[in-house]
Amino acid sequence: MNVKNNARLEFLGIAENVSFARSCIGAFTAQLDCTLEDIEEIKLVVSEAVSNSIIHGYGGSRDGRVVIEASLYDNRTIEITVLDYGCGIEDLEQAMKPSYSSDPARMGLGFTFMKSFMDEMEVISKPNEGTSVRLKRSFLLREQQAYA
């Protein structure tokens, strides 16, 4: 697939930057001729992935960095990778179960939202090295499925 556009964003992993990150990627997604509802869903999944990095990856330490790489492809496809260099996830299988959360104040819905609103999700994590979440969605395929 041809890359039509690409962006890389790096920022401090602090709560103030969650809104910044989702707004940037939302604006980037808008180039794909999609609906406002589509953009809201992309903003939600970015919010979840970045919040995970800050809360779980860095445990609120305020000095870790989060990197987002986003690419636009043919078929109105977006691929987003959210990466941190934090503590990693010990048990990926357990972390990805719906309503699992290591923090009782959250609902454990982060990965569920990411899986539901995207076509593909791949999580790679190494303890003490970090976590990367790759998310992909084709707006063209989703439309074709909706009208099929």
């Binding site: 989702r22 809201e40 979840e48 104040a105 959250r106 609902m107 819905l109 982060g110 939202f113």
Partner: peptide, 13 residues
């Protein structure tokens, strides 16, 4: 205008 799982967690708590 926007809510994510942190906001949902606040409500459920």
């Amino acid at each position: 205008s926007f809510i994510d799982s942190s906001g949902l967690g606040l409500i459920i708590g």
